[in-house]
Design a protein around this nucleic acid. Structure first.
Lengths: 248, 248
DNA sequence: GATTGGCTTTGACTTAGATCAAGTTGGGAC
DNA sequence: GTCCCAACTTGATCTAAGTCAAAGCCAATC
């Protein structure tokens, strides 16, 4: 089902749809060479845990194919997804040996991993990579803060629209797409996972998805295949200003 | 009201209660010397804006005294605080010229600022500082994600207890304090600011603070001066496991 | 082709927190 | 002192979303 990704030393980070944002071949060919020695791929099936909070973690990596999620749980079972990991997103924290969150494969996932120690050594003496990592982390921080607004202040309907916007936008980054045409994608999340991301119950998610469908904001084929006829209508429903800063 | 901070080149980041975590004198005396040339202080009165979202921002800095807040606003006026800036917290993003959030002085604030261009140059050729900045950013990301759980899944009472825990913990870092004694601090936020941080209304905040007082979890002198007789009781109310990971 | 079991939808009812509307408090200006 | 005003509290009501319960819908398996 998953194919091995094509990722050669000559690949250009601007053109390659599946970018290892932390290790860009265009800029750091030599360093990438060093990393090739400690690079390996891992597959996970949909629903499988990638790592549990508290586990020892001796790799960092990035998602190549599929979708994974970062979640936090309270003792009584309430859970909150705190990050959605789409292709090119980075997992793991240099300098930390223990996972802070549960990481779960939401769809089938292919991850590209690097052993942590050599990766940290690389950061140590390759300022350029450290710099890029800082930039990525700052982007993630912005995304997390954007999501705090969603969680704290938006209505259920706006939350759903916000989530669909994010997925549509990230999906559009991977595919070449005509301007202003309808956006089509498959939801990589169950209703329950959506609820965990949005701080809702799965019933409310289901009701609001149905409502958006009835109102013509989206249309559904099956339960997961979504068509958005007018993306700006969706952004409006999400309560965002049109400049679109959801994921920077 | 605010006094000029003592911040000499010989100051040790481990001992000094007001630390510029980004530029630690102990580790980077020479580099700090370079920064001294572009360093300046700015004061803000309680309630004043420090910078508006969208404004050009040609400095970075850190809070020395007081409390500031990062907030995001929707067009219809709903607002969500996305960060609480306590002494030693960093403001601004290297590589970004435009502010992404509104920054407001919640109490009287003294900030230590550096012009952005020289600061970025320093990062560029001082890997150690870049590394520290990455670590700080990762910590902030963890804090933001912890807060996503608060916003998405906790009840109003748990939210209040979580906020009080954070302030108590950060406050305890600034003062030497007996183990297990009562924790005493002044709330640096109005009820409205608390509501904006917690995704609640100010009325709900007021009610839940009163409830925690009635139940003996906290006691109040005036409206802002808080005594927590048993900090572990407060953490329990916050729904946290006892290991205390709210701010790493 | 029937059966199972995950998802998902939909309905009826409940509730935590929002909203609206008075009051109260307390510190600073005069 | 008293007046003022912003910050806060408290009460009454409303509502969006949660809870509980019962079907529905595939896709995989027997």
């Amino acid at each position: 089902m998953l194919q091995e990704p094509i990722l050669t030393g000559s690949q250009n980070c601007e053109e390659c749809p599946i970018r290892h944002r932390a290790v860009c071949a265009r800029c750091e060919t030599d360093e990438l060479q060093r990393l090739e020695e400690v690079k390996y791929y891992r597959r996970f099936e949909a629903g499988q845990p990638i790592i549990w909070c508290g586990d020892r973690m001796d790799f960092v990596g990035s998602v190549v194919l599929g979708v994974a999620s970062l979640t936090q749980a309270m003792e009584d079972g309430r859970t909150q997804m705190v990050g959605l990991l789409l292709p090119s997103d980075f997992v793991g924290r240099p300098g930390r040996a223990v996972a802070a969150y549960d990481v779960t494969a939401t769809t089938d996932v292919l991850m590209c991993c690097f052993r942590r120690a050599p990766f940290e050594a690389l950061i140590e003496d390759t300022p350029h990579i450290a710099h890029r990592l800082l930039e990525m982390t700052l982007d993630e921080l912005d995304a997390a803060r954007e999501w705090m607004l969603v969680l704290g202040r938006k209505t259920a309907r706006e939350k759903i629209a916000s989530l669909l916007s994010i997925i549509a936008r990230r999906d559009a980054m991977l595919h070449i797409r005509r301007e202003d045409g309808p956006v089509v994608f498959d939801l990589p999340l169950t209703r329950e996972a959506m609820a965990d991301y949005l701080g809702l119950t799965l019933e409310t998610v289901s009701r609001q998805v149905s409502a958006l469908r009835k109102d013509g904001v989206i249309s559904l084929e099956g339960k997961r295949h979504v068509t958005v006829p007018d993306i700006s209508r969706l952004l409006e429903e999400a309560g965002d200003d049109m400049d679109g800063g959801l994921i920077s």
